[in-house]
Structures are given as structure tokens and as C-alpha cells.
Simulated assay, not measured.
Amino acid sequence: MLAPQADQVRTLEKWEKNWQEDKIGFHQPHVNKVLENNIHKVLAGRTGVSFFFPLCGKAVDMKWLADMGHSVVGVEISEKAIKQFFEENNLTYSEEPVPAIPGMKVYKSSEKNISLYKCDLFNFSSSIRGQFGAIWDRGSLVAINPRDREKYSSLLTSLMAKDCRYLVATLLYNPELYKGPPFLVPDEQIHSLFGNSCDIELLQSEDAMTDRQRDWGLDYFTEHVHLITLKSS
């Protein structure tokens, strides 16, 4: 099932170019419904939760969570995306280098507890900001190159605090008809990537087909949402 996409590679430069040319059909101008519908399961009664957004883009979900009193850390390769996030949400921000990682910069909101790091996601680690109480992964696992998924799951697991609740949306479709991204991530792979150290719960399965996917030539397009938590040792 994964074979047609196994060798697909999208470079960081290509993602940056997408942002520069405003080819960002993946961006949603509103708070994601999956997050809204499952926020109670992610929070589990907690307040002031630290959220991590891998490949955050300029997701409005970040401000929505910060407005609720949570802290947000995002990682994004595109400086344009980061600056647009602050500007479009009327937030002032500071910009400073991160000495530990050459070339890495962090942009911090003055009004809200939001810090966005401009860097390759795989250069980020818990040594920079510790571990997190929640992760929201809407377009990250499905966007990274399929060959990097083991490395990705190791990184994400290392960023999870003991009580972390990791919400991830994945996509199912026929990979013979569309090469991606977003890439196909079957449920079996979620279990092979995270199952050794985590409990995995399928929260919802929804038909996510729109005209955009029909234009890709797809005949079905299903979104699965999983909640991943560390096994209690």
C-alpha cells in the first residue's frame, strides 16, 4: 500500500518556495474542526497546557489555543509563514537567534505565549524547549517524506511529557492515483511507528473528500484522527 509513495521526496526548499508563491492550499483560514471537536480529549481537564505544533505554518489554531491560556511552540521552515501568522493575527513579535543551533531563529509574541522556531524540524529537540503536554499534528506527519517517518516518530515521542496527549490527523486514499503530498499514512503504520511506546486510540474516521481531491483524481479521501499517549511504565 505504501510502495507507490515510499521514495517521494519534497525538499525544504520546495516547501519554502510554496510559501513564497502562496501555493498553500493546505492552509486553513479557520480553527480546525478536528481540534475543536476533540479539544476536551486533548486537555483532559488540564489548564495552561504547553502545545507543540510540528510544521506549524501560520495555523490560526495556535492563537485560538493561546487565547484559552495555553502556551504554544511551533516549528516551521518558512520565515514568511511565521511572519504572516503574527501579522494576520495582529500580534507584535520579537525575533532572536537560537545560539545552540546555527541558523535557527525564534519569533516570540509580545501579547501571547507563542514562540515559533524557524528551522528544519529535525534540528529541533527537547533540549531547546523541554517536553510538551500536548501535540497537534494536522499537516505534519502527512507532509514529511515517507522515508523520514521513523525519525519523525522518535522525535515526537522524545518531545512528549509523561502526560502528553498527541492528536494526529492522517489521510487514507489510493496512492496509485495521487503521489502526494499530503501522503497516505495507514493506521497500521501509526501503530508500527508509535505502538511500542504509546497507546493509540482512533477517535474518528471522516469522509474528507472535496473538489480539491477530485481534481487530484482520487475516488475516496478519508481522514482518521488518533489520540496517542505514552504508555505508563
Rank of each mutant, 00 (worst) to 15 (best):
L65T: 02
L65Y: 12
A66P: 10
A66S: 14
D67V: 15
D67G: 12
M68E: 15
M68P: 05
M68I: 13
M68F: 09
G69H: 10
H70M: 08
S71K: 06
S71W: 03
V72T: 00
V72W: 03
G74V: 05
V75S: 05
V75N: 01
E76Y: 00
E76S: 02
E76Q: 05
I77P: 00
I77V: 03
S78L: 01
S78Q: 04
I82L: 01
I82A: 01
K83P: 00
Q84P: 00
F86G: 00
F86V: 07
E87T: 04
N90W: 10
N90G: 01
L91P: 01
L91A: 06
T92M: 02
Y93D: 00
Y93L: 01
E95G: 01
E96F: 09
E96S: 12
P97Q: 07
P97G: 14
P97A: 04
V98F: 00
V98G: 05
P99F: 15
P99C: 15
P99Q: 15
P99G: 14
A100C: 13
A100K: 06
I101T: 11
I101E: 08
P102Y: 11
P102I: 13
G103W: 13
G103Q: 10
G103K: 11
M104H: 02
K105G: 03
V106G: 03
E111S: 09
E111P: 08
K112C: 09
N113C: 12
N113G: 02
N113S: 08
I114V: 12
I114W: 06
S115K: 13
S115T: 13
S115R: 07
L116T: 02
L116N: 08
Y117H: 08
Y117C: 12
K118C: 06
C119N: 10
C119K: 03
L121N: 01
F122W: 07
N123W: 01
F124H: 05
S125F: 06
S125R: 07
S126K: 13
S126A: 15
S127K: 14
I128D: 02
I128S: 07
G130V: 12
G130Q: 10
F132T: 12
F132P: 04
G133Y: 14
G133P: 05
I135A: 13
I135D: 14
W136P: 10
W136K: 14
R138L: 15
R138W: 10
R138C: 12
G139L: 07
S140Q: 11
S140M: 10
S140D: 11
L141R: 13
A143I: 09
A143K: 14
I144M: 15
I144W: 11
N145D: 10
P146H: 11
R147V: 12
D148G: 03
R149H: 09
R149G: 03
R149T: 06
R149W: 06
E150Q: 13
E150S: 11
E150C: 06
E150I: 07
K151N: 05
K151V: 02
Y152W: 06
S154G: 02
L155W: 08
L156H: 11
S158N: 05
M160W: 07
M160Q: 08
M160C: 03
A161T: 04
K162R: 08
K162M: 11
C164W: 09
C164F: 04
C164T: 04
R165D: 08
Y166V: 10
Y166K: 12
